[in-house]
Write a protein that binds this DNA or RNA. Structure first.
Lengths: 133, 133
DNA sequence: CCGCCGTTCTGCCCTGGGCAGAACGGCGGG
DNA sequence: CCCGCCGTTCTGCCCAGGGCAGAACGGCGG
């Protein structure tokens, strides 16, 4: 099961300004969703555990909303992890975006895609954020 | 030159709930200040570069305000770095907090303090966030 | 069809982001 | 002493948006 989502319009609109990396809320949300889906947790139950509404969690995961630090902590707690791990993973994600971006001209990721492997990739700027289950 | 700042009251008030780590805005702000001071940049000029007010930057660095993702990006840009690096450093900081916390009973950090070495430590919960120039 | 999932929409309350102006205190230098 | 610079806090303000509830939508599998 591969979920495909696109960067938010705001991220795309900044392409003209040569913005090389996603915004915090985008990287955060993307990573939160990855963690949640990897743990086979539904959006609804995670939201309930975190004490927030499902629609709000949906928007956070999609980078549409800017959660407060307390909200981040609540979600992190509901996912049974820590802010340390989260920030580390977000950083890795962002670094991977840059790596993929740098290797674009080599067709590197194209090769990987054509290989049909399960991917856990995060890309941005006219690319697709792919999430592998 | 050692600047000493204390965790925000909100972080202290959560001690009773056994919160093991700082909030995102606290870790973020602390790290931003470390970066800025290491680069010998003043708060005022950094704020100007970022296009925000100095008082606002002050509050962000002190974990008092929750900056939007765009603000984070602006500050990061003003510091001449990237969100990748920032999140990695924040994660390291948070991990260090845990390490120090775990080694508390061994008096490890006491030994280091008594050695008079320049420290770049981040601690929380009834401890002091020490920033070495 | 149904139920479950996630998403989007609408409308809302009210919090707080972010600012400007002012004042404060610390520090170093003349 | 004064001054300038630094960072912080305070006050007051505008308004953006956090976060929600209810509703509706679309996708998917049984």
């Amino acid at each position: 099961m591969v979920t495909v989502s696109r960067p938010s319009p705001s991220a795309l609109s900044r392409a003209g300004k040569r913005r090389p990396e996603p915004l915090w809320r985008e990287a955060l949300g993307n990573r939160l969703r990855l963690i949640r889906t990897h743990r086979r947790l539904t959006l609804a139950e995670t939201a309930e555990r975190a004490g927030i509404s499902p629609q709000y969690l949906s928007e956070i995961e999609r980078g549409r909303k800017e959660p407060s630090s307390e909200m981040i902590a609540a979600i992190v707690g509901a996912l049974g992890m820590s802010l340390v791990d989260l920030t580390a993973l977000v950083s890795d994600d962002l670094r991977r975006v840059q790596v993929v971006d740098l290797s674009r001209s080599t067709g590197h990721e194209r090769g990987a895609a054509s290989a049909g492997r399960d991917l856990d990739r995060t890309v941005v700027e006219n690319r697709v954020w792919l999430v592998a289950a």
